[in-house]
Simulated scan of single mutants.
Amino acid sequence: MQLTSTQQRAMTWCLIAALVLLALWFLGPVLTPFVVAAVLAYALNPVVNKLDHLGHGKIPRVLSVVMVEAIFILIVISVLLLVVPIFAKELPLLREQLPQLVARLHNRLTPWLGQFGITMALDVATIKAFVGKYLSTNVEETLGSVMSSLKLGGSVALAVLGTLVLIPVALFFLLKDWDRFVAILVDLVPPKLRPSFDNFMEEADSVLGQYLRGQLLVMGVLSIYFSVGLALFGFDLAVPVGVFTGLAFFIPYLGFGLGLTLAMLAGMLQFGGLYGVLVVAGVYGVGQLVESLYLTPRLVGERIGLHPLVAIFSLLAFGQLLGFIGVLIALPTSAVLLVAIRRLRASYMLSKLYQG
């Protein structure tokens, strides 16, 4: 059967997409730092261009790239350091209070569950020994354990270290030559398809930009809300936990779960009872409702039209297929695919097949 030129082009693009997916599948660990750097370069390139514009060409692009990347790295380090006071303060408390909390929970639940014929038996002594062994407050012992783990899994540690070093290097070169790389890719598109390709990429770029700006607004608002909400109820670690939770919302649903876990732990250890759990449940419950019903729909969802169920499915599907890379590119890729689906739907609605 003779294929038309349109069918041949479609098959060619499908083959290219399949090859790209296979490359991501087999070369995932190798490509991880480059994909991370590419995503960061896409997000930071407008900032570099803004500096170039403000400098009227007098500031070399290399200097703009160095400034933007240095500020970004400082922000990342600052965010990571937010978690340090949480563990520095909570681990000693956890070692002291966790056995007591478990014993108290056991004493309260056992009679209540007994009414329903359910028997619960917790070995509090074993739990206390486990906590005392693995949650040592001795810094030297902790560092020794970490170093031993690094020696045992030296290849893993070396791979992680190499990735952390390679990401900023790749980011520098991508930002420095971003326009040139984009021009090379655009030149691969046949001239006849260039107008429709440029129109599609412009719309996709607009959707991605709206998604990133909306997500940053959501993260900022939630960081303030959780910090203030926990502080009003007397949490000592309100600001670190609140800011971490808000920023972790960049990874939908998983970020909320991490922040909730840290807040629950801080609440139980600080207040030693049900008060901390109820406060955290109330603050985080209201925050999740506000985020789900107002912030994300208004600031993110309405801008890109990505339903929450679609977001969850894309995270799970891309994560299953491509691992960490899949989670990283799931939502941006889904936003671009959404633009393609809209165009296909519009073409179908106008086609003779639909109109009969």
Rank of each mutant, 00 (worst) to 15 (best):
L185F: 11
P111C: 10
K352H: 15
T126I: 08
N138W: 07
L150C: 01
L269D: 07
I251F: 11
A281S: 13
F130T: 10
L316P: 00
D198H: 13
D236W: 11
L350D: 12
T333G: 12
M11V: 15
Q320G: 14
L208F: 08
L93Q: 09
K50E: 13
I75G: 10
L161Q: 06
A248T: 07
L337C: 08
Y348M: 10
D187P: 10
P195R: 10
L161Y: 09
Q215L: 09
F116I: 11
I71F: 15
L344G: 14
G301Y: 05
G282E: 07
W178S: 01
G273R: 02
P46V: 05
V68C: 01
L328W: 01
L328I: 09
Y284E: 02
L24K: 02
A311E: 05
G246C: 06
T296F: 03
A238C: 05
Y275I: 12
I73A: 13
I73N: 10
L222Y: 01
T110N: 10
I59E: 03
I86H: 04
A204Q: 00
L278S: 09
Y284S: 06
S314M: 08
T110W: 06
A238I: 00
M219S: 11
H106V: 12
P252M: 08
A17Q: 06
L269K: 02
A129M: 13
W25H: 10
K128G: 03
A129C: 07
V279M: 03
L44Q: 08
L113R: 00
V228L: 09
G55N: 11
L105Q: 14
K50Q: 15
L338N: 11
L338A: 09
V79A: 13
V83S: 10
I59N: 07
K89Q: 12
L164I: 15
K192F: 08
G285L: 05
L262D: 00
V30E: 12
L91N: 00
V165Y: 15
L98T: 02
V84M: 03
I341H: 14
T137D: 01
A37T: 06
Q100C: 13
A281E: 00
V218T: 00
G287C: 07
L122C: 06
R343V: 00
V146G: 02
S148R: 15
G117A: 02
L105A: 12
F256K: 02
A88M: 12
